[in-house]
Design a binder for these strands. Sequence first.
RNA 1: CGGGGUGUAGCGCAGCCUGGUAGCGCGUCAGCCUUGGGCGCUGAAAGUCGAGGGUUCAAAUCCCUCCGCCCCGACCA
Length: 576
Amino acid sequence: MRWTRALISTLRDDPQEAEIVSHKLMLRSALIRKLSGGLYTFLPLGLRALRKVERIVREEMNRAGALEILMPALQPSELWEQSGRLAAMGPTMFKLKDRAERLMALGPTHEEVVTDLITREINSYRQLPCTVYQVQTKFRDEIRPRFGLMRAKEFIMKDAYSFDTSLDAADRSYQAMYDAYVRIFQRCGLRAKAVEADTGDIGGKWSHEFMVMAEAGEDGIVECADCSYAANQERAERQLPPAAVTGATPAVQEVSTPGVRTMEQVAAFLKCPPTKLIKTLLYLADGKPVAALVPGDRDVNEHKLKRTLGAKRLELADEATIRQVTGAAVGFAGPVGLTIPIYADQALRGATACFTGANKDDTHLGNVDLARDAQVTEYLDLVIVGAGDTCPRCPGTLRVARGIEVGHVFKLGTKYSEAFQTKYLNEKGQAELMVMGCYGIGVTRTLQAVIEQSHDADGIIWPAAVAPYHVALLLLDPKDAAVTAVAEKLAAELEAIGVEVLLDDREERPGVKFKDADLIGLPFRVVVGAKGLAKGGVEIKARTSKEFQVVPAEQAAARIAELLAPAPQVAPPTGL
RNA sequence: CGGGGUGUAGCGCAGCCUGGUAGCGCGUCAGCCUUGGGCGCUGAAAGUCGAGGGUUCAAAUCCCUCCGCCCCGACCA
């Protein structure tokens, strides 16, 4: 491909709209252009890279035995009523009506459609196990689209769904997908890490997320310094330190604390460490008020609370509700005397001599013995685990890093097969529910993650497997017929052996071409210029290296193929 | 939705405070010069100053309303 025909207009300056490196580089190197918030056009260069990621995904899915299908993006809303997710997913779905006034949705995901499909298609254990997948555009009315392709309103996802006859069989399907994911991200040149994750609105009991470790990541990852434990901060657990043994606590005592509301203020006012304070937060779980208690120096992990309560919606209670439940203004809630369900973090088991809000304006309580003075409904794991906490698996210390979620695998169980009565007949002719799993990869996000993880000050550094082209062939003297002939011959030779070449035939100064070549970051740069030819040939340089080698023009194609060979050609998929 | 920021030529920005009818750099186009890391020179095209309303003889500039975009939180591939 000739640059002058390729619709590649690079930008010198960082566009003001972009914040993180990968987003800036995608715009500067003409991979994408923004149409509107969270909506992007792929330019030819970006589309080529995207297609390569998709190809890797397909090859590995096929290798793992999954069957490609394609489901509609436009879906009838009844399906969502059937699964009960209209409420949970509702606000993030783009909804519209057809001319018959029928409510439709642009699919944010496809569990409903696929379950409906399989319910009709599969009747017998002989057809199981079955895993299907698709590469489809998903639509989500994101609250806040962000960072280019990282969180968009329209994006491409590979989603796969497995159907099995038993939990054991489902585990095997899950493992097959897990292994495929490891290979996919490896082949994309990514350093990805699988971590234990929260299942969110998708549901199910167990899941792993595949995280690309990067500072710009949206997720906190908790990992153990000593063992292999790693989890999303939304789910991460900790081991509790042994409880301190304390003596009897004197009777509860009111303390006047005018205008003192936050934990910092209370601790300073009472001159006590925040660990001796009990933080009481009021939530509305599916509309019903509950209290969550955590140590004063801790924050509530709302994902954990929502999951353990089995709530569809969870939000902090508003001022009016707080006033109604506690009889006091915000900032003075406490467990003593509350009649709503009270959930306390397990670290508060046996908490004595603590301070809490008094459910009375401008007042706190001292000498609170939680077990003695309050009706705790249940002790649960409720806090956000962070750096310095103890690993739940070993005595090691936890640390926190950031990651980009590029894939997520779920063991769904029978949540959807129950809703859709997805049954098969077993060997004995009895109907049983299928056990499901679902598996997503954010394809467009993965592409951006590659750039986020692989770049330098000059531009992108494409891993060969997903690079838009393999070689940037810089023709430095396009007006010199002899030099041009050499470059064009080399380009033809390379293309003949399957090497993808971008020939920079623009009438630009060499400096411009070098800068642009670094920016778009193809794995190899080959320079053909009058000076170089006079000195013995063309120059071949890897994007990752400062050194170049001079090779006679006739030998260049063979040498480049040799250099390229180990990288892009990963073992081809097996299969029938 | 709450909090913060920002909208002036394709991109990056100045002008706004103190109203007088729009400018700089890059890019684009034509030409010269040059040709190994965004070179130099000459000339040209290109802007409803986010939108609407108001104040004024006069509004990019002052006032009101709305909208877009970006960042922080809830959402998630």
